[in-house]
Structures are given as C-alpha cells and as structure tokens.
C-alpha cells in the first residue's frame, strides 16, 4: 500500500509464515511417525513438508521486507 501504516504485504507475510509453519510442522511429524492420513494420495511425496516450507519462507521474506517501521527505508 502507498503511504504510511502497515503494508498489506506484512499481513500476508504473517499469515503465510503461520500457515507454512503449521503445515511444515505437521508434515515433519507425519514423516517421523509414518502415520499418514488414509484416503490422501501421494503421501510419499511429503507435500506438507516442502509446500509448508515454501509458504513459510515466502512469509518470512514478506514479514522481514515489509515489517512495520521499515517503510521508506
């Protein structure tokens, strides 16, 4: 967003970081314990781990780049 205040990208970063972290955490648990949800396909690809990781990294990037107070720097 133009002007002062918290940019929308910061909110998006926070949400992606939280969601990515949750998916990644669950994916690692699932991988560690081998307890995969029944009826879900392609579990051997460990989708929550890499997709959760991608979302978390993207979220972290946005949180750092658009953190409040950094505007204009």
């Amino acid at each position: 967003m133009h002007g002062s205040g918290i940019p929308i990208w910061f909110f998006i970063g926070v949400l992606l970081l939280i969601y990515g972290g949750m998916a990644l955490g669950y994916g690692l648990y699932e991988w560690q314990t081998g307890s995969y949800p029944p009826l879900v396909e392609l579990t051997k690809l460990h989708t929550p781990v890499w997709w959760g990781g991608v979302l978390a990294l993207l979220g972290l990037f946005y949180v750092v780049k658009f953190r409040p107070g950094r505007a204009g720097k």
Partner: peptide, 12 residues
C-alpha cells in the same frame, strides 16, 4: 482437494 490435501493443507 480432499484427494491430495492432508491435515493443515486441507484447512488451507
């Protein structure tokens, strides 16, 4: 979605 997304990702 139900076919591929497990807990967490399905919520997303």
């Amino acid at each position: 979605m139900v076919r591929y997304l497990g807990p967490g990702l399905l919520g997303l």
